[in-house]
Amino acid sequence: MEFWTEIGLPAFALPGLLNYWVAIILMMIGFYTVMAHENLIKKVIGLNIFQAAVFVLYISMAKVDGGTAPILGDDIEVYSNPLPHVLILTAIVVGIATTALGLALIVRIRDAYGTIEEEEIRAAEQEAGT
């Protein structure tokens, strides 16, 4: 909020839950991408959007007004909560692992079916089945 007064705008309070709402909207954009798009790479990208949105949600929870990063200093009283940071550090690394695995699977699917469109894969599958 200080930011607004510093740049000369009238002080107005952002709704306290705005960060969470933005995170949730981002999440749903990612979710929609995963569900609606036929292209497998696009689906993985949607998954990434979803992930990052969850990270934003957690880090928003960790923020304390007037706090600093949780690195101990002599004349600092208030720190942000370190626990969500730890959780999200782990989540980021696990996220990249799943992304890598998903993309590797896509490469193999493309080798086997010659396409990465879900619909075409299904068609090829049915053709092979009959």
């Binding site: 990434n48 990052a52 990270f55 934003v56 880090i59 928003s60 960790a62 923020k63 304390v64 706090g67 600093t68 990063a69 949780p70 690195i71 942000s80 969500p84 940071h85 999200i88 550090l89 980021i92 690394v93 996220g95 990249i96």
Partner: peptide, 17 residues
């Protein structure tokens, strides 16, 4: 993340993400 005081997470996200 930097704005929200999570510098470690920001490093990781920038490098990994």
């Amino acid at each position: 993340f930097v704005v929200m005081d999570a510098v470690d997470v920001a490093f990781t996200e920038a490098a990994v993400g």
